[in-house]
Amino acid sequence: MIDTQLAALLSSGSFIIIGLYAAVFIDNIIKKIIGLSFIEEGANMFLIALAYRTDGVVPIFLPGMTPEWFASNSAYPLPHALVLTSIVIGASTLAVMLAIAMVLYRKHGSLSASVILGDKHE
């Protein structure tokens, strides 16, 4: 049986690596931004994977559960709450980046990062 937590951790790690690869090596700005959101989601998934517990239950205390059973079987709710905030922040930065990319495309007529974001001050 595949361990779900290990699988989630591995995929979050590969999300981050793939995202870093895209952000560094792909020239198209939109694709760069997609890579960046991969990194963001990888970090979020890492937090979620921390909260997982094999054969666990939702962290709601229902009648009939003993406190000891609940304590050793419920998932950890804190990372879920944190990730929710983090996703919202990630979405807003993504929106700002895409908006700037739009303006840059109108200004330069290109989406190539080496053309737009190269060194043009000197």
């Binding site: 870093l20 952000a23 560094v24 990062a113 080496s114 974001l117 190269g118 060194d119 043009k120 001050h121």
Partner: peptide, 13 residues
């Protein structure tokens, strides 16, 4: 230390 994104990225990684 120019403003080129590729150089910044390289040093960051």
């Amino acid at each position: 230390q120019s403003d080129s994104l590729n150089k910044m990225m390289f040093y960051m990684i």
